[in-house]
Design a protein around this nucleic acid. Structure first.
Lengths: 154, 154
DNA sequence: GCAGGGTGATTCCAATTTGAACAACATGCC
DNA sequence: GGCATGTTGTTCAAATTGGAATCACCCTGC
């Protein structure tokens, strides 16, 4: 059996963690997505874009940087920013330092839309996840997932 | 300000947990999806369908039951089962107790495909998530997320 | 300066997802 | 029995996604 690697299956605890993670995260995303769509007419990717742009201020962010921080593909980002631009929530500008570059910025309407969407979104995030966890679980989750995200970033 | 609810924003700890959860879960899913696509030609939803069917044995499962346990929409399930049926990995039968019903079952080829895909998948799940967590984090995650999933099921 | 390789964003296409509409059937209640 | 109501699974159209190809541009080394 040369080259045959030993397979380390998941034991009961590991499997329980994995399946719980799968179900819970799917349901949380679905719940959050639903709320945003119903109450603000935004998809979650779109909401995340608005949040990142709000944090970036007047300067805006480069498309690639946005795509990296949002995990979606570049083409997906182009599409979503296009949608937001159609609605007047986001503006595109040529990047000053790189002619190829495009920086996206939040418009006033975008800032308003985000401000109106945020309370309902936060409430749903609490309902779906945060308020279900106690203080210690919250801390553990934050620490562990920060590490997981960190590792996968490379 | 009648009817005005106080908005409970996320404090620093809560926000850290939420953003870490968002990033980590996106990256984990992306990583797992990639591995399955590259090594087995399966999407993660398809893999999950095969797993559920394998667990169901000869009797198979009703479509609706499958859709519920997999979180996807009914029409999405119809599509994916259709794809798997095309490849001969899954078979559909009329349900004995309900003429409208359809039960999906795993074919021999499906069982084989799952057996071949499983080792690589498990290895990636370990790499992306499980092996990054220590014993206590794993237990906390399993317990907390089981509760989260439970609540959202209603 | 300028060739070559790499980068930034978009476009295009095929695959997938979802909700609504639909048809056929089940179920409970009178 | 007969009807109102809810289920079951599929089909349809519209929206979204990711990857490959593309075009224009930056940059390094020579």
């Amino acid at each position: 059996m040369a080259g045959m690697k030993e397979i380390r299956w998941l034991d009961e605890r590991e499997m329980a963690a994995w399946t719980a993670f799968l179900e819970a995260s799917h349901r949380v995303f679905r719940s959050v997505e639903q709320q945003l769509k119903d109450d603000a007419g935004l998809s979650h990717p779109q909401y995340e874009i608005l949040v990142k742009l709000a944090a970036a201020g007047r300067a805006g962010i480069r498309m690639t940087e946005l795509a990296d921080s949002l995990i979606t593909s570049k083409s997906g980002l182009t599409y979503q920013v296009g949608q937001l631009e159609k609605r007047g929530l986001v503006a595109r500008r040529a990047c000053p330092t790189d002619v190829r570059g495009v920086t996206a910025t939040l418009t006033e309407a975008g800032r308003t839309a985000l401000a109106e969407a945020a309370p309902g979104h936060v409430a749903r995030v609490r309902e779906a996840l945060i308020d279900t966890l106690d203080r210690e679980e919250l801390a553990t989750l934050a620490r562990a997932f920060a590490r997981v995200g960190q590792r996968l970033r490379d």
